[in-house]
Design a protein around this nucleic acid. Structure first.
Lengths: 235, 235
DNA sequence: ACAAGAATGTCGCATATTTGACATTCTTGT
DNA sequence: ACAAGAATGTCAAATATGCGACATTCTTGT
């Protein structure tokens, strides 16, 4: 299946959720750096699969990662893009649960990987690591709740807009999102045809500008307020 | 709107996610107890609303709480039920974000509420509180991811089954869930009619037993394995 | 510059879901 | 025991979405 690799979105490093590393001092980062080992990945290369039980945390040093689940038919449901300073796999360290998601590299990517036992030891020694992780995961849960609400309550057009906002970095006015419509479609749980219609409407409203394997949000603020102005109309 | 209160589910104290308090020693609980103040709520009484900015954590001592979002038309999307030892509002302590959910009491309920500043001080003094909260929130995020995946990927019948499993306590074989079909319907993002059909089918398969304002899962294990046997068939 | 592949845009038809209505069953308060 | 309200069960018509097919546009490698 062709979309098994690089539904890329290369130039979007930070994504909404505050990166773990940004809450740590240079010293603390250096300490992590010593505790783990580095691995390099090519664009699209699989890092972890859903169901894996090897325990440990991964921190993105360069490049990015896409998190989602591949269906048996090859469709990919995207949950989030992670950029520099973000982590994944942390919950394999603190719980007994297997991995829930497939993670693959977006662009040339370097990961710092730390084993569960090693990372636990570090957290016990220095609680600030835990604090940083706690904040990160609370904010992530917040984001997931918003996605959930959008899927349940909003009609297709609004749902699409909301996901675009959730998948784009907060600090830009006019982000360029790099993915195929088919990927966004399965992330929203709709067919490509329906998504295409929705994007068409949003485009007519001059809120976005669809392109080939990419999509530009004309203005985040405008899209946000458009969405707000419609949020009173439920599905 | 009548369903603004008590879509109850009274006798289900612990819900899947490991309660925060269960990870703490008696001493540590006592310390929290001193730091906060108690408030009592009647069945169905509103505790917090989406958008509230008052910051602090709430811990359930007795009774339970239902977490979700009321739509403008009074429909209620349920995210989870919380029982004894669970917390909510913790992310108002560690982030700047407003509350995302409406929380109301299920049955006579006593909450221990601790202000953000107070709780932060406690966490700084004793990192074990943070650790407990970290684990809780990682497991919660895990659960949310499962819900997201179900909404996006599974056909109605399977989606319904999955939500029933996610909303019932893990440690029972044959839980009795207390809610109206209309509430479950909006939690799943479908109409009451569709949900009713789905429940009918599950009932025919002898997997559940629908009742008046309640629903019994005949056997959690059986339902689980039925779901697994169908999970290869995507929407 | 060109061909081949990949992704988008757009059909019509099949299917699933919503909507609004109504009858039925269950529960609760008096 | 009864009436009133609340929730479920079910229907037909309207709508929305999925599916499969195909033409078109864009990109990439040679």
């Amino acid at each position: 299946m062709s979309n098994m690799r690089h539904s890329c979105m290369s130039d979007l490093p930070g994504f909404r959720v505050t990166p773990f590393l940004s809450a740590l001092s240079a010293d603390m980062i250096a300490r992590l750096s010593d505790a783990g080992f580095r691995r390099k990945f090519r664009d699209g290369q699989l890092v972890h699969s859903r169901g894996d039980t090897l325990r440990g945390i991964s921190i993105i040093e360069t490049g990015g990662a896409q998190v989602g689940i591949y269906g048996p038919d090859g469709t990919f449901i995207l949950t989030s893009y992670l950029g520099h300073g973000h982590t994944f796999g942390e919950f394999t360290v603190f719980t007994e649960l297997p991995r829930t998601h497939d993670v693959s590299a977006v662009g040339e990517t370097t990961l710092l990987q730390i084993s569960a036992s090693r990372f636990l030891a570090i957290c016990d020694e220095e609680p600030a690591y835990q604090r940083a992780l706690l904040v990160t995961s609370l904010v992530r849960a917040h984001r997931l709740l918003e996605m959930l609400d959008a899927l349940q309550r909003l009609p297709l057009l609004e749902r699409t807009a909301k996901f675009l906002l959730l998948l784009s970095p907060e600090n830009t006015t006019s982000p360029l999102l790099r993915f195929r419509q088919s990927d966004l479609a399965s992330s929203l749980g709709v067919s490509r045809a329906s998504l295409n219609r929705a994007l068409g409407e949003l485009s007519t409203l001059k809120l976005i500008e669809p392109g080939y394997s990419q999509l530009q949000i004309i203005d985040r603020e405008t899209l946000q307020s458009w969405l707000l102005s419609r949020s009173s109309k439920p599905r």
